[in-house]
């Protein structure tokens, strides 16, 4: 009787695949960048040689974009794992419970009214506005759908999610109606999701949030596993439920809101990644969390490649790509998991 699962193969395969996709996401795009240019740009950056155009494109655009993409993919997938575990349901994802749209609303408020209210916290302003919006929307959904006795009905959760999403999106609509042209374009891009705005700033900020949230979440996985049996059983196993709920919601909101702040609304990564991981090897949350970092980064990089290449040299918003893939998966999941309703 084997009392552990060996995940080594999964880690190796995912890491290799991630490496390959990352390499291609560095090279391919509107402008093809050669492997030798990748190396020369790095060495030229540190020596004082002048950089060629391609080398500058690589260093200032391609590289930060590829890294941001990894981080965002990991963030959204982790958030999906955490939320599914908390709500005890495999069809929950941050986009469905208001986090993303709330963040979008917060950000569009800042885009349009930020200058008016002289609200400014440097590079943190946008992530902060998005985080506050995302947090508020999530908490509202969570509270409104909470039944007495601690059970979370998935139907009321999803319906409340729809309502709050609609409210936030009409708020975004209102803001883009009020906005002047450049602001309106920022808002539109936001709702569709795009990595074209990635910079070294976004790499640092999303990187920090991803890293911190990952290590915090690692401490929550055991309690989340116990929660798979229900709140009562988790309590009997010594889990402090209130603390767990608050921690998970906080971490999720930070993950989603910070990522959304830079790249806009990207749906369904948080839904597809945990589902695929469960198909590969089980439902242990530690495995899902670590796996979601790798697979989330991998899938979003693939989606970004598709977004860059399908209409090259123009580019598709990445949210359109993930939705096109995610919606069929979501419907499939709904049909398979009838007993959750």
């Amino acid at each position: 009787m084997q009392l552990n699962r060996n995940y080594t193969t999964v880690w190796i395969v995912l890491s290799i695949a991630l490496g390959v996709v990352f390499f291609f996401s560095l090279r391919l795009g509107a402008i093809l960048i050669g492997t030798e240019e990748i190396f020369s740009s790095v060495s030229n950056y540190f020596s004082s040689d002048a950089l060629t155009l391609n080398e500058r494109i690589f260093l200032n655009i391609r590289l930060p974009r590829a890294i941001t993409c990894l981080e965002v993919g990991a963030s959204l997938a982790m958030a999906g794992v955490l939320m599914q575990a908390l709500f005890r349901n495999p069809i929950v994802e941050p986009g469905l419970v208001g986090t993303s749209s709330g963040a979008a609303f917060g950000a569009s408020l800042y885009f349009v009214l930020g200058a008016t209210f002289q609200f400014n916290a440097g590079v943190w302003t946008l992530p902060l506005a998005a985080s506050v919006g995302g947090a508020l929307a999530t908490v509202v959904v969570f509270l409104l759908s909470h039944r007495k006795g601690g059970t979370q009905s998935i139907i009321s959760l999803l319906l409340t999610g729809i309502a709050v999403n609609a409210l936030c999106l009409s708020g975004v609509g209102m803001m883009s109606y009020l906005a002047r042209d450049p602001q309106a374009r920022s808002i539109t891009f936001w709702n569709l999701g795009t990595l074209s705005g990635a910079s070294w700033n976004s790499v640092l900020l999303i990187g920090a949030s991803t890293l911190i949230c990952f290590f915090v979440s690692l401490r929550l996985v055991k309690s989340l596993n116990a929660l798979a049996m229900g709140e009562e059983e988790a309590l009997y196993l010594g889990v402090n439920m209130n603390r767990l709920k608050i921690s998970v919601l906080t971490v999720t909101v930070i993950l989603v809101a910070v990522a959304t702040a830079f790249v806009g609304v990207i749906s369904f990564i948080g839904l597809i990644v945990p589902h695929l991981l469960r198909l590969i090897k089980g439902s242990d949350n530690r495995y899902l969390l670590i796996g979601s970092v790798l697979l989330g980064a991998l899938l979003l990089s693939l989606a970004d490649l598709a977004a860059r290449l399908l209409l090259a040299p123009a580019e598709l918003p990445i949210g359109i790509v993930t939705s096109a893939v995610g919606v069929p998966v979501f419907i499939l999941l709904l049909r398979r998991n009838r007993h959750y309703f």
Partner: peptide
Amino acid sequence: HTDVAFPLKVWEVVMMGRYP
């Protein structure tokens, strides 16, 4: 009676007893 929300193996469920 206790049901789990996700597909877990029997030994994984029993191992939860050791979580504390």
